[in-house]
Design a protein around this nucleic acid. Structure first.
Lengths: 344, 344
DNA sequence: ATCCTGCCTTGGAACGATCCAGCCCATGAC
DNA sequence: GTCATGGGCTGGATCGTTCCAAGGCAGGAT
């Protein structure tokens, strides 16, 4: 009678010693079979492997973690979903991160923290050796976590450039927002638009200014005026609606490029109120290719960030940091694409 | 000179032994100070606590996990975000789950798995003792995970009733979809509508049929006809658009209640194509209160699930399962609310 | 036959926490 | 003074793995 898979006679999961006894070798040999198979002679390896399969053995995580001083967990702090905005990019990113991590032998551990304290939550996980490294994502207004983590010598990779600290030397991956906005603007220019408005975030947002520069660049390259065609506001639908109404009245643009889908939805609200049709009367392009962009009639053209690729590069950088000896991966700047829909 | 917080002389985090030495007590006494403070004399406790604070000691997770045979991690499987649908309820739920878990002393570990294999991913985590329990969420088409996990004696709590297996005895938490649809329908009846159509999922969806029954119940209670007013289709915008077009032509409803925001967006597409205004010409109510519902002009009235509360109840049930001796919490059925917006 | 070489394999120690049994000592009853 | 009592604390053993140093063995050179 074979023991039921993954459960030895006494009811608890099989251990290295159980496998060793069954295969007639020592514990260390089983360990080698699992971690350094090429150290074993072929026939021994086969015998051990058979015992492993028969018992359904998997190494105990806690014991391995204790001995190797590693948890094979990556910490990711998540913030409360902001209701009323289209900022659900995290969904796509998180899934890709989990997937990429798994392939690298890691799991993702989520934690939260006081949104007003950028460092909350990191400390406990670090001191209790619960995670090996962090992925830092919420860097839209500077990145105090980076300096803090670097001070603690905690390995981490940032999704987002260290805008506020050019001297920071942690690895990062980011998406070229300026290129995205430029792409959007050129797309509209290609459709014959000349008076293209920019609807963006307030000036203290590094990302917002970066994206805006892409619009400026494209407009200047074609010799189109930008004066009076730009507006900076909060990232809410209401702000986007008001700002776009003012722009329509004062600057009479034929198209809008927005720093976010949230703002673009504000434009659609204004158009709806005025009986104007997006894509026919006024073109609108958003940023992030959110679900809203995909679903709203007649479809919102939007800049799509390659989040899947970002996650893969982030994990690659993490693998470097966590290898022996640690390697610092090159920073990565990825180029977004444009998803064209009915609004343009 | 005091050692820097959280790092002892040799560079690694302080251990129980370090604290014991500093406080002049044994390891066990420090352990008791952390886990059973009431076993210590007040002055001893104070002395140990001081040493703990000075050294910035936190128990090593791996060592504690190994000894106690628990990881204090809860596994949550996430599926790829379905692009083109409004199904982002997970965002809200996941955040609440992480928050509630933290308060109970647990962390959430994410994993993925082959979407076509409902059991993939669970096995490895279980056998390697990486998690203490699971939260099972993707139960829309039956719940094979439940039977499988129960067979493995793995503790888990389901978000979603065991529709397909009334004999299942695992704890679950769910939202009363019928009550939600009834709420939506009554809301429309209160606004004077009598010909209210149902736009739902295919018949093999338990959740879809449950929600539909709420519509039926409300309509019958007011003596309104339902014949010809219901349509079942795929959960995509395109399907919702086609089905609503057919219903408008053949049954001439003045309002739609939908099984999802995705389908409701399909209705909005049809209305937009025909130059009809949601909320003015035809009323539309969705289900899930997604970001799309919040952002689309003029706002989509939608049934909002109390996901925060679901998460809290799920964690409460988990705490029961993981306590000694295990307790099975009572099943919970929560009632959703209606968020009224411009579309009705 | 002896020794060396290199490959495979072995047993003991260690990671840092908790469990367990028992020791110490102040207290109170006799 | 002796002994039982029990709260407070200690030291050894243990969880399951990997690291480390060394042992065993076959094969070739001496």
């Amino acid at each position: 009678m074979t023991p039921s898979l993954g459960r030895s006679a006494n009811g608890s999961p099989p251990t290295l010693a159980d496998v060793a006894e069954r295969a007639g070798v020592s514990r260390q040999t089983v360990s080698n079979a699992v971690n350094n198979p090429d150290l074993l002679r072929a026939d021994t390896l086969a015998r051990v492997q058979l015992a492993i399969d028969e018992l359904g053995y998997l190494p105990n995580r806690a014991a391995r973690n204790l001995r190797t001083r590693a948890s094979h967990l990556i910490g990711l702090r998540i913030l409360p979903a902001q209701e009323g905005t289209a900022n659900a990019t995290m969904d796509r990113f998180v899934h890709s991160l989990v997937e990429a991590s798994r392939e690298a032998g890691y799991h993702v551990l989520l934690f939260t923290g006081d949104p007003t304290d950028p460092v909350a939550g990191y400390d406990d996980l670090l001191r209790s050796t619960a995670v090996d490294a962090f992925v830092v994502t919420d860097t839209y207004l500077g990145n105090p976590q980076a300096a803090w983590l670097a001070g603690r010598r905690a390995p981490f990779v940032a999704f987002g450039r260290p805008w506020d600290d050019p001297g920071a030397d942690h690895p990062w991956v980011d998406v070229d927002g300026a290129a995205g906005a430029e792409l959007a603007t050129k797309h509209l220019i290609g459709r014959g638009h000349e008076r293209i408005a920019w609807l963006g975030w307030r000036k203290d947002s590094f990302i917002g200014e970066d994206r805006r520069s892409g619009w400026t660049r494209a407009m200047r390259a074609h010799g189109f005026a930008t004066t009076g065609l730009a507006s900076r506001t909060e990232d809410t639908v209401a702000s986007g609606r008001e700002a776009s109404a003012v722009l329509l009245d004062e600057a009479v643009p034929s198209a809008f490029v927005c720093a976010s889908d949230t703002l673009a939805m504000g434009v659609l609200h204004t158009l709806a109120e005025r009986g104007l049709h997006p894509g026919r009367d006024v073109a609108v392009v958003g940023f992030d290719d959110s679900m809203v962009a995909q679903l709203v009639p007649p479809g919102l053209t939007s800049v799509r960030q390659p989040l899947e690729e970002v996650a893969v590069m982030v994990v690659r950088a993490l693998e470097g940091l966590l290898s022996h000896p640690p390697r610092r991966a090159d920073d990565v700047l990825l180029t977004p694409a444009l998803t064209v829909r009915g609004s343009s």
